[in-house]
Design a protein around this nucleic acid. Sequence first.
RNA 1: GGUUCCUUCGUCUAAUGGUUAGGACAGGAGAUUCUCAGUCUCUAAAUAGGGGUUCGAUUCCCCUAGGAACUACCA
Length: 492
Amino acid sequence: MDVRVRYAPSPTGLQHIGGIRTALYNYFFARSQGGKFILRVEDTDRERYSDESLEDLYSTLDWLGIKWDEGPVVGGPCGPYIQSERFDIYKQYAQQLVKEGKAYYCYCSAERLEALRKEQTESKSEYQGYDRHCANLTDEERAEYERQGIKPVIRFRVPTEGKTTFHDILMGDISRRNRDISPDPIILKSDGFPTYHLANVIDDHLMGITHIMRAQEWIPSGPLHVLLYQAFGWEIPQYCHLPMVMGKDRQKLSKRHGSTAVRDFRAKGYLPEAIINYVALVGWSLDGSTEFFTREELEKCFTLSGIHKSPAIFDYKKLDWFNGQYIRACSDERLVSLIVPYLQEAGFVHDPMTEEESSKVAALVKPAKERMKVLSDIVPLSAFIFRDEPVTDKSVYIAKGSDEEKTVKALSEGSRILISGLKEGKAQAQIEEELAALSTALEIKVNGVFQPIRVAITNSAVSLPLFDSIELLGLDEAERRLCRGLSILEEK
RNA sequence: GGUUCCUUCGUCUAAUGGUUAGGACAGGAGAUUCUCAGUCUCUAAAUAGGGGUUCGAUUCCCCUAGGAACUACCA
């Protein structure tokens, strides 16, 4: 049987790490099995729905390079793939269950349910949930409610006896006594829209889904879904509940742990390949030692058996490390194209760049490459080239082990060696040697000479290497800044 | 509270009856270099606890403890 899996998010928020991990696992599993990956939009909650979320879904998957075989935009034989466009299907199936006595209309008000819930929690009653008030209404009672214009919901009759078991590929058999399943959950809301449980079961069946891979938070509703499949007389798909992604505090990963929206990671300058690589490894491993995977490799080697059972904490630091690795693996050309938007946003270069700017950026990439964890790091790293905010605090110029007097000498003499050396076209190594000799003469460390020079030129104690910086700045500008640095130091 | 699931270094994980319990990130130390990075080397760090089964348990079983998820006209 051909594998058919789906990612079925609800467009009620931005795509986050947890969601995208589920998408990735489904996608990789489908590809590795030569099956189909289907995207379905579960937009049955029209109160929380937003267009922005839907756009974010498409753009995020697109950015990650995840292509769906069937779904919105691309279509497919089981469409439509947006649940709000399948309104009538759900209604029809829900009514079928009512007709067969497997579901019933309920006219209870939100107020009554609220009061019921409150009473149950206050009395610490063991019994939680709906009291099946409308389970056995007579035709007369129903007619009366209808006359009052009350819009009913449809509730699914859950057996009170027996237990329901389903098999999970990872977890094994999971069973629950039927009396512990939420009593008679709503499957069709009063606005005519289905709830998740109904729509999900119907669509998974109609779309021929063979494996349901979703987060472990769905385990508790597994038995209910099985009951629904049985009520319809449908074959139950295979279940594979994925471990949750947690924050540092071991709670479900959420905004308070930092950025979780993929869009935010993208904006900060994380590369899609780093996100894919790291996220794939949160809850899955191939062999415990391979750590670099391209999307294409994962499409081949992903296995269900490599998925871990226990929840995993999302480690931002390790993501940073992966991102740094991928940045360093970028070609200079690609890195330039990735960096330019950040420079433009900072107002450092024009859009489009002038010729001078683009040659500067091309030169910038080399020394900056190994200093970046995220693309946005390029802004502080390159600010000295495009802006000039001199350091006026003298102590910044003075290296450890040196003092003000020696620093003044180092800067004035060092500048002379440097500038004349460069003008004469001396080799970098030669100039370095002369600067080192100066430091020996002054009885300070080599950095005692380099530091004031670098601070004067790059306006920072932490910067790109000196000779790269001068090249980026131009010799004239470098000379100007050196003079100014000296005058700052000599000021009383 | 009830139900269900989970438990190897701080973190992600490997090892499914026999290993000095391996790798990676983070941490520490060192080397390199003009700072910062990067790179390289070294280092510390774990089988939650208690019972079984077995010649032998990280691995199988039970109990305890801890954690998580769910318990909506949200998904």
